[in-house]
Design a protein around this nucleic acid. Structure first.
Lengths: 137, 137
DNA sequence: ATAATCTTTGCAACCCAGTTGCATGAACTT
DNA sequence: AAGTTCATGCAACTGGGTTGCAAAGATTAT
């Protein structure tokens, strides 16, 4: 368990400090993406700036990816092991307008778009809004 | 010209005040989407709150639609006359990472997504990032 | 082991887009 | 003309994100 955490960090060349272990633990437990303010609430006492920088480090090293779901706060979720965050790796995200949870639809990759000529593509953000399976019961 | 502005406002049941005429004029001239701070800069002296509420009114009455392109400020662009902002009306947006302009790709509608069972769809936000035709010259 | 260096953390302060309360002013109703 | 409704302008606040800086911890060289 703890070993898993450390090896994941090592695999992405991130020094396994106590803080980072804790944050990764939280992220691993999560089934949905989490925002910085939400992450803050998971800890009794934790510094926003430290958590912020931890997430940034994770993102830079492609351990997590960020999702702008339009709620006003950026959310983060673990990348798949193989993920390089290239356009080909991109999947669709789903925001439930009822519970405000954001899901990675890992199995649904972002469809191809034929851009007008002389527009070049770097990345795509695709967020579907609706009601999730939990809330639609 | 001025007649056009007023009839557009009337068509969407928006009382044509001086402020609203001015804002709609700016929006009409724009070929790309514009944010509240950007809109502010188009005027010598204008109140942020008033512009904010003007945009909200326009949006509520489906004269404009909002785009969250991930830059941190929401942008607004005119709707097509027939637009009802339903999922079927949705088009792809393009953010140029060089000039920071956001384009409505009106001709490119958002592709259909097959959501997992018991997920329901309300709307979709799809933003493609890359280099626009102006900047790629 | 000790000193020098680099990295991480914690606190505070700041930035900025968005938003709201409230009082004034304009337009419309009776 | 008085009363009502709606729009505007100012100020203040919120909240997420971000940065500066100094202390604490880890790493490397001496």
């Amino acid at each position: 368990m703890q070993k898993d955490i450390d090896s994941k960090l090592n695999a992405k060349n991130i020094k396994p400090t106590a803080m980072r272990q804790l944050v990764l633990q939280v992220l691993t437990k999560q089934s949905t993406a989490i925002s910085l303010p939400e992450l803050e609430n998971k800890f009794e006492k934790a510094d926003k700036a430290t958590l912020y920088r931890t997430l940034k480090t994770f993102e830079k090293n492609k351990l997590i990816h960020s999702i702008d779901d339009g709620t006003g706060s950026i959310k983060y979720a673990l990348c798949k092991d193989s993920c390089e965050c290239h356009p080909d790796d991109l999947h669709v995200h789903f925001l439930c307008t009822h519970c405000n949870q954001t899901y990675c639809l890992n199995d649904i990759s972002v469809p191809n778009i034929n851009l007008p000529s002389s527009f070049s593509l770097e990345s795509v953000n695709m967020v579907v809004k609706g009601i999730c399976s939990v809330c639609s019961k």
